[in-house]
Each structure stands twice: as structure tokens, then as C-alpha cells.
Write a protein that binds this DNA or RNA. Structure first.
Length: 263
DNA sequence: TCAAATGTTTGATC
DNA sequence: GGATCAAACATTTG
């Protein structure tokens, strides 16, 4: 589910609803997601006022007047405004007006209070949507391994996941197993352009709803209809009609066109 | 019925 | 320090 475009869509859908409101009460049902003492987390949150919501890569930072609420959607997390609590609700914040829920089936997500921002987490690279092309190209070509694995690495670049790495590599005509150092300057720049264009288009379409992704108001995205290769094994390439193949790169299912994408 | 796969990150190991 | 792999978990797919 949630890569940069989906997280951005969630942030846009809830920000105006929660900023300026205070947390009246908090309840939790998963120690995996909160990574800590529920009472202490509740004590830290209750009484705080929400001053803003920011995204960095796939991270969501809900800024409070004292501290920060860090939210990561993992694979199946949902941040829902005024949703109905259910079997997979892991956290529930009652605000002065309305309720903010964190649902997460597989509990790979996080919902944690931090007194200070960023300090407790592994540093992430520049945001994929705003990284300057020069910086992207320079850092990319220093990396070893395979281009797809590098794009997925959040320490290299924040925000790209499995769907958008495949779509960006397809758009740029680059084979997912290409060593980054082998890319010409021109091809690396082309990859940057393709990546940013695809991320922006996906945001316009409110993200990709592959299975059950929805934004903060419960609405599905539609960008999955525009995927050229992701999840399209056996279908014809939109450009050359060659059959789309699925391989495994960096332990991840990887979709590509064997004719359009060469090393 | 069961094995494999699923969008994520992390931590261990080489 | 990087790259690679397994693990965390529940549900769906073949």
C-alpha cells in the first residue's frame, strides 16, 4: 500500500480536519505498533494540541504543541478521520471534535510519541519528490548493487517503494538489475524525471489502491489503473506489446518489460 | 488444504 | 560500511 503518493494523499486528507484540535483521550491495543507503555504514551499525548502535519518520505509527523506523534503506515496501516473502530484498530485518539483512528491489519506500522523529532529513527535520504536532479544523479552513481534495490532504500531516497520503483524504471527504460554505476549521466537524469513525473501523477490520482488502501477519509485512489507494468505479468507492454515479466530483485516482486528495459 | 505471496522497515550477518 | 537476508504479522491467492 503506502508509498510516497499514498502517504501524501493521507496527509492532505486529514490535515485540515485535525490541526488546531486537542487530544482529549487516547486508547491503544497493540504494543507492537506503539512500541512502548500505553499509559505513558497516553499521558504524553492527552492535553496536547495539534499544530501541523508533515510528511517526509513515507513518514508522517503530527506536530503537537509539546512533542511529536510519529506515524508510519507500514504495509497495511490506515489513518482514518471519524472512522468506526474495528477489529484492527490499534490506536484511537478522541479529539476536541472528531476521532482519529489508526487501523493496521499486519501491525508493521508505527504510532509513537516522540518528545523530539527524528532523533530516535534511522535517518532517511532526501524526499523523492523534491530531491534536486544533480544530487540524485551524483548519489545514485556512487551506489553499488542493483538500481531497483537502491531506489527502494530509504536511506538513499525517502518515499519510493515497490510499485513506484518499477513504474519509474519502466518509464525510463532501465532494467531493474542494472548496476547504478553503469548508468550514463543522461539515463540517470531521465530516471529522475520519470520518477518525479510518476509520483506527481500518482498524487493527482490519490495514490494506488491495490488491495485495500484508502486515504484518511476512506476514499480509494485510482492510479492503479494507470500502472504500466506493476502487477501486469503476462499482459502486453503498452509501448511495444512484449509480454510483461515478473522476476525477483532485492527480495521483491519486480515487473518489467524485457524489450523496453535493457541493462 | 497448504504453500506462497503481499505494499514496509529493522536488525543480524557476511 | 554496504549488501543481503530473515523476521515481524494476517490475509489473500494459486
Amino acid at each position: 500500500m503506502p508509498e510516497l503518493p499514498e502517504v501524501e494523499t493521507v496527509v492532505r486528507s486529514i490535515t485540515a480536519r485535525i490541526v488546531g484540535k486537542s487530544i482529549v483521550s487516547a486508547s491503544f491495543s497493540s504494543h507492537r505498533v506503539t512500541r512502548g507503555d500505553h499509559d505513558a504514551t497516553g499521558t504524553a499525548l492527552v492535553g496536547s494540541t495539534i499544530s501541523g502535519v508533515e510528511r517526509r518520505g513515507k513518514q508522517i509527523w503530527i506536530c503537537l504543541d509539546r512533542g511529536f506523534l510519529y506515524v508510519h503506515l507500514g504495509m497495511t496501516g490506515k489513518l482514518l478521520w471519524n472512522g468506526e473502530p474495528g477489529k484492527y484498530t490499534r490506536a484511537c485518539l478522541q479529539l476536541t471534535d472528531g476521532v482519529l483512528l489508526f487501523d493496521d491489519i499486519r501491525t508493521f506500522g508505527r504510532f509513537e510519541f516522540f518528545p523530539e523529532r527524528d532523533t530516535a529513527l534511522a535517518p532517511v535520504g532526501p524526499d523523492a519528490l523534491t530531491v534536486p536532479v544533480g544530487e540524485f544523479v551524483r548519489r545514485l552513481r556512487e551506489r553499488r548493487g542493483r538500481i531497483k534495490a537502491v531506489l527502494l532504500s530509504q536511506s538513499f531516497l525517502a518515499g519510493v517503494g515497490n510499485i513506484y520503483s518499477d513504474e519509474a524504471l519502466y518509464s525510463a527504460g532501465i532494467h531493474p538489475r542494472t548496476p547504478p554505476g553503469r548508468l550514463s549521466e543522461a539515463r540517470a537524469r531521465r530516471l529522475h524525471t520519470a520518477m518525479v513525473e510518476i509520483l506527481e501523477a500518482a498524487i493527482t490520482h490519490k495514490g494506488s489502491s491495490i488491495s485495500d488502501y484508502v486515504d484518511g477519509l476512506g476514499e480509494r485512489g485510482s492510479f492503479q489503473q494507470l500502472h504500466a507494468v506493476y502487477g501486469r505479468t503476462g499482459e502486453p507492454c503498452p509501448r511495444c506489446a512484449t509480454t510483461i515479466r515478473r522476476i525477483v530483485v532485492g527480495q521483491r516482486g519486480t515487473y518489467y518489460c524485457p524489450r523496453c528495459q535493457r541493462v
